[in-house]
Structure formats: C-alpha cells, structure tokens
Design a protein around this nucleic acid. Structure first.
Lengths: 203, 203
DNA sequence: CGCCACCCTGAGCAACCGCTTAGCCGCCTG
DNA sequence: CAGGCGGCTAAGCGGTTGCTCAGGGTGGCG
C-alpha cells in the first residue's frame, strides 16, 4: 500500500472533498516542517486552494491540528484496545499490541509525526483532551504488561517504567521511519515485538 | 544537582557572560516551544537584553540553534565513545553506554529536546554536520552491540534494527522526562540499561 | 428561468517576525 | 584627560503571518 492509499485510509471519510484535501495537505506539511513552520498559505497551496478557503472548513489553523491529532490518537488507541481485549496468552497480546502499534506508526509515519510531536501547538482545552487519550493508551499498554506479570508470564520489576519504555519504542518509529528504508512496517513491527518480549521475559 | 547547575555544566564555558546567557535562554525557549515558535524577542527577553543584542554575539537565530545542537551532540557522542572504549565485558560496556546516555538525556532534558527534535530547523550545511555526529553516535552504539554478538555474549538477530531501538529508548527520555517525576535520572538509566540488556540477552 | 445557498478567490488588515542601523555609555589605553 | 572601541538599546525596515471580507460563480431547487 503506497503513501497515497495510506493517507486515504486515515482521512478517507472526511467530507466534503475539499476539507479532506486540506487535512491531507496539513498532515504532510506539519509532518515535514512542524506546525509553527507551516503556514496556512502552504497548506492551502498543497491542497490546490487559496488561503481563505481553509477558513470555510476549519475555524483556525489550530483546529486543523486538533482534528489530525484527535483522529490519529483515537486510531492508535483503538489498535491497543483491540490487542488488549484479544484472547490468547499475555505474551500473545503484548506481541500483537506492539506489532500493530509499531506498524501503524511506520505506515502512517507522517500522521504519527504530527500526532506525537506537535502536541505543544495545541490550545489548552484541545491539549487536555489529547493528553487524556494518551493516558488511555498508556493505561492500555500497562494493563497488558500487568496481566503478564500477574500470570507469571512476565518478569517486570518496574511496570510503569517499562510501559513508558515500550511506548517510547513504538512512538519513535514515526520520527525515523523511511519508506525507502530496508525494512517494511511489518518487519519493524515483528522486530520490536520480539525486542519487547525479551524485555519482559523471565530470566 | 538542580536545573540551574545542570545548564551551567553544559554551557558554563561560553564567554562572554552575555553570550552564555543568550544560549541558556535559547535552550529553555527552544525546549519549551520549539525553534519556530520561539522569537528572538523571547530569547533576548529571557536573557534580560534587547533583541538587537542577540546579533552582537550570534550572526543569526539559526546559528544559536546550531551552537546548541553541536555542543549537545558532541557531549552525548563523547559519553558513548567513553563507554565503548571502556574495559570489561560487552555487557558492561552496553550497560554503561545506555545508563550514561539515558542519564544525560534526563539530566539535560531541555538541551536534549532541542538537540533531538529541532534538527529540521537547521540550515543545510549545519544539518549535514549534525547528521554526521548522529551517525557516529549510532555507529558507536552499534559497535558495542556487535562486539557482544561476536563474543557470544549477545543474541541479536538484527543488529542495526536493535541499535536503532536502543537509541530510540535513550533519546526519547528527553521528550518525556519530568524533573518532578518519581524517578531520578540515575534510576531511569539503571532501568533502561537493564531493559536493553534483556533485549540482547541470549535466550 | 430565476433565486438562493454554498464554496471559493483576490485583496487586504493588524500584528508580528528576523534582522539592521544610528547613537549612547562605560571602560580602557595612550 | 581624551579618544577609541566594544557592548548594548531604541527604533525601525521589509517581509510574512493568521485570519477576514466582499464579491463572483456554480449548482440545485421551486
């Protein structure tokens, strides 16, 4: 699946077409340059429109970021929830959680970069809402690890520190992933799942 | 060691005093808001000067960033080099490398944030130079892991992928570290060193 | 066929930005 | 003591920014 199709997967249900084109353009520009270095003229230009058109569909530039951030966080939280609620062993659930979280951040690395690294550009109320979503993602990952500790499958002296480490691994993929690189998102997902299982494996 | 002393450690040898105050102010502002959201008025204000004073000591705003980035990268590369060149076992060297790299990013998380997340704001020549320093850091960490694989101390199917994962862990500390948090930089360093050793431990 | 609503553009506004310049002040040296 | 130099400030410049407004065009509906 190429980059274009990937973006369509995430933003495909935004209507009308113009609003969707603006969001896609904003994701690309924010991922490439950062929120503050991106201008509304830049976004509109990439969407094939004038700067004023942006304000037909979005109240402010920050609202664009908020929408992107919300969708991205909800999507990735859903993945973690699905892994946590899956059957099987704790190791299987952790493997699935890491693999799909990492794969998502690799496949959607442009969205991932915006979602993970542009929080500081959100307004206070939007920020609080997004931080709550992030807390839930952390809580979901921690509960998978806790389950494994309880069942004896995992040996984890510091559960919350380890949870933070696992999330760092997954999230940071968005920062360095290169679509022209040697590994596919799947391969990175498998590698990281293996690395994380070794982190929690009893000695 | 409090935050003030920490900054002095990194920037203490910059003269004259005004230039040092400007750099320290820039580090704080860039870490807090990002390069592009920080204005020269903001930096100068934090240093107790007028905006024009900045240009007595630095050619441009980007040169400030370049100096911060250079110092930060050189410092952290030196830590890795020292760990790699240390005696003892491969596991000992990896433990030292991770512990001190993580501790540095925690103790100097404001500098670390600028160093790790504001690369995109550098001009092309400065960027190329900094990327070279980052490559050396990665090569140093990889050589520590390779030594362990060669000696049989480590079991690592994908050395470069694992190296990237280890660096992600260490670097990302700068993003989330909170001085008011429950763990000290030392404790996080120990935890992460342990986690990394488990990642490479033979099964 | 005419009207209305929606989407968009061109032009512009008020504020802000990185950086420059002219002049002042204090300190040091001859 | 006077002059020069370095460091700094106040003021400003040219350009850019996020956002607004008036008007045009198109499509759909009565």
């Amino acid at each position: 699946m190429d980059a274009q199709a990937m973006e369509t997967e995430v933003w495909g249900d935004i209507t009308p077409d113009a609003a969707r084109r603006l969001v896609v353009a904003a994701v690309e520009a924010f991922a490439e340059r950062g929120y503050h270095a991106t201008t509304t003229r830049d976004i509109a230009g990439r969407a094939g429109m004038s700067p004023a058109a942006l304000y037909i569909h979005y109240k402010t530039k920050e609202e664009l970021l908020y929408q992107i951030s919300g969708v991205g966080h909800r999507r990735s939280l859903t993945l973690l929830r699905q892994a946590a609620e899956g059957g099987g062993t704790p190791a299987g659930r952790l493997r699935t959680a890491v693999r799909s979280f990492v794969r998502w951040h690799a496949e959607h690395h442009t969205t991932g970069r915006v979602v993970q690294y542009e929080l500081g550009a959100l307004g206070p109320e939007h920020y609080a809402e997004i931080v709550e979503l992030r807390r839930r993602s952390e809580a979901t990952m921690r509960s998978i690890i806790e389950d494994g500790v309880r069942s004896g499958d995992f040996d984890v002296p510091d559960v919350s520190g380890t949870t933070l480490a696992v999330l760092s691994l997954c999230i940071d993929v968005a920062r360095w992933f290169n679509p022209d690189g040697r590994r596919t998102p799947d391969q990175i997902g498998e590698l990281y799942a293996d690395l994380v299982l070794r982190m929690v494996r009893p000695g």
